[in-house]
Design a protein around this nucleic acid. Structure first.
Lengths: 350, 350
DNA sequence: TTGAAAGCGCTAACAC
DNA sequence: GTGTTAGCGCTTTCAA
């Protein structure tokens, strides 16, 4: 395996990667033939194929995707936009998505937006310049305007663990999920239940889950109280741990909290115990997502688990389907069933 | 913002994204001028610039990076190869790397290899076909042959939280890190200390850390015992939880365990407590990495923390430096100092 | 200050 | 079976 060296161009160690032309020249055929051999298309005689293959190996030739991308108008690249990779749930989703995408011949560009609108915009801009074939929005915490833009530009988009009427989506049913958690707490005897929101969560989803929360509460005959929906976290855009503590210090404080995701629930567990409130002794805690950490016996967080593998595989399937079969089919929407996992962070109120 | 529609090509809704030619035509200039305007190079009169900009907006023109990549022989793409994104440490490193890379104008391709040699190979192949400008190897658990190949192909490589003599690297000093943990345990009074290895850890690193472990033990006047270095985990390539339990059931079992990383340490904590061994009552446990989860009060894992932010920023700096200033400078090696964080998972032996 | 022209490395339609 | 040719959408000399 050698590589051509160009001498005297100023940097005497400049290497030029071999191109299809080099292979063609060395094996004494045309570049179309080389192309046919590489892609196993057309028909080439065994003899020429062998010569080409040999030249390929001699030169260490590797097809240049930038050229292929240009001519094919297709990159086999997909973008993944995620709010926070430090959230286990997202990390695992990304990991699985990359796995499925790769198995299907796609390479994955990952962008961590951190919930910042400008960052989100610029990342997407970069993805679009690179002409990714499609974009997966993960647990999308961003601006809906972004989504409309994407859809407007006819970029294939799949939403994984988040939702929009206008795009392909796969997610669990928020209503069912929140319902499962609330019902469990109600059955334990809780009546005063608060809702903790991740500040990294976008307004629409936040509202929709909060609304789900309210509705489920109502269904259980409990009056929803807007001041019991608390932003809780340390995102740049605020999120105020103090608010939750404040709430718990009031009279007739909540005896249980549902957190919008496990990440937040675990932060909250830490916060509460740091402030001297026992979980579940003083306050019960339930999360949503089903991350591994929640399952550790020392954490033992009751949670509504999302089927991560199905989310990832279906998400990729939807995205690739959209990419490969065109933009005009109506959006496909898949609702998955979440499952309540009861652990030790929830108990009857005192 | 409109876009051209092509009618009668079979798919009447086929869209063609506007090209530089469309902009040139609409604004009545040549494409070189458009190019100059877009890249803010050359000199264009204010009048023409305005016309071009207007056309760009009218058409919703976005430069096609696939074409630019081809002609520039540069993609502004970097690859990140990581063993396991479900390991918090890696996830956080990836997140930060993406941040820094993006700030410098690069987009990040992430590949999760899961420690599989073939997967590793095929992912790298894909990255190289896409002509990434460089590759970051994260906490690299893979085959050294892979690295030699990369280096042989003169692809800029930076190793982050892992090490090779021949590439740019930034990592903490294993010897110091392991030493910190062992010394802490020795000071607590432990003499029988075992070492738990993550099976997703590559042989060389595994050996180097294990060797560091042995040496540090010796330095403390403790006889290293090879059978006390136990593979512990559930990778596909084995890793045998039973072995560790076995070891603890023997006579004169270890009173403390150092785990090769926090991920493993926490798994181990779970395993031990599931088997009825208290941590730190029956056995003390120390990890390496300093992931967030280790800091939760319920976990309270004593650990040797790596400076994640420095690893990420330096790693990116090294990689971009290599990309932008050529392949021939000698490799730069940066050792960072780890820091011991003592929590409740370690205590004097009974 | 602007434009014409020559590629970058590949695919694909069409000749031979 | 194989080669020729014409682009894909850009950047970059070099003239004008």
């Amino acid at each position: 395996m050698t590589r051509e060296r160009i001498v005297g161009d100023g940097r005497d160690t400049a290497f030029r990667r071999p191109t299809i032309n080099d292979v063609a020249a060395l094996s004494g055929v045309s570049k179309s033939t080389v192309s046919n051999v590489m892609r196993q298309t057309g028909s080439v005689s065994d003899a020429t194929r062998r010569r080409v293959v040999e030249a390929v190996e001699r030169l260490g030739y590797r097809p240049n995707a930038t050229a292929r991308n240009l001519v094919m108008q297709r990159t086999n690249l997909i973008g993944v936009l995620v709010g926070d990779l430090a959230n286990d749930f997202n990390a695992e989703l990304v990991k699985r998505i990359e796995q499925h995408a790769s198995a299907a011949g796609y390479t994955t560009l990952v962008c961590n937006t951190g919930g910042h609108a400008e960052r989100e915009g610029s990342r997407i801009e970069a993805l679009l310049e690179q002409r990714v074939d499609g974009i997966a929005l993960l647990d999308f915490t961003g601006d809906r305007a972004v989504l409309s833009q994407l859809l407007g530009e006819r970029v294939p988009v799949a939403m994984v663990s988040c939702w929009s009427e206008y795009a392909d989506c796969v997610a669990v049913d928020d209503m069912v999920g929140v319902g499962l958690a609330v019902q469990h707490l109600v059955e334990l005897g809780h009546r005063r239940i608060a809702y903790a929101v991740d500040p990294l969560m976008e307004a629409t989803t936040r509202h929709s889950r909060a609304e789900a929360f309210d509705r489920v509460m109502l269904r259980s005959g409990l009056p929803p109280r807007s001041e019991w929906t608390v932003l809780c976290g340390t995102g740049d855009d605020g999120g105020d741990d103090a608010a939750m503590l404040e709430l718990l210090r009031g009279e007739a404080p909540p005896t249980a909290i549902v957190a919008a995701n496990d990440h937040t629930a675990i932060r909250l567990m830490e916060l509460l115990e740091g402030a001297g409130r026992a979980v579940p002794g003083d306050v019960s805690l339930a999360g949503i997502d089903g991350i591994d950490t929640a399952g550790l016996s020392r954490i033992a967080l009751t949670t509504v688990a999302q089927p991560k593998e199905e989310l990832a595989s279906l998400g990729v399937a939807l995205l690739l389907g959209r990419i490969e079969s065109g933009y005009d089919a109506p959006p496909q929407q898949r609702r998955l069933r979440p499952a309540l996992i009861v652990r030790q962070s929830t108990a009857p109120p005192r």
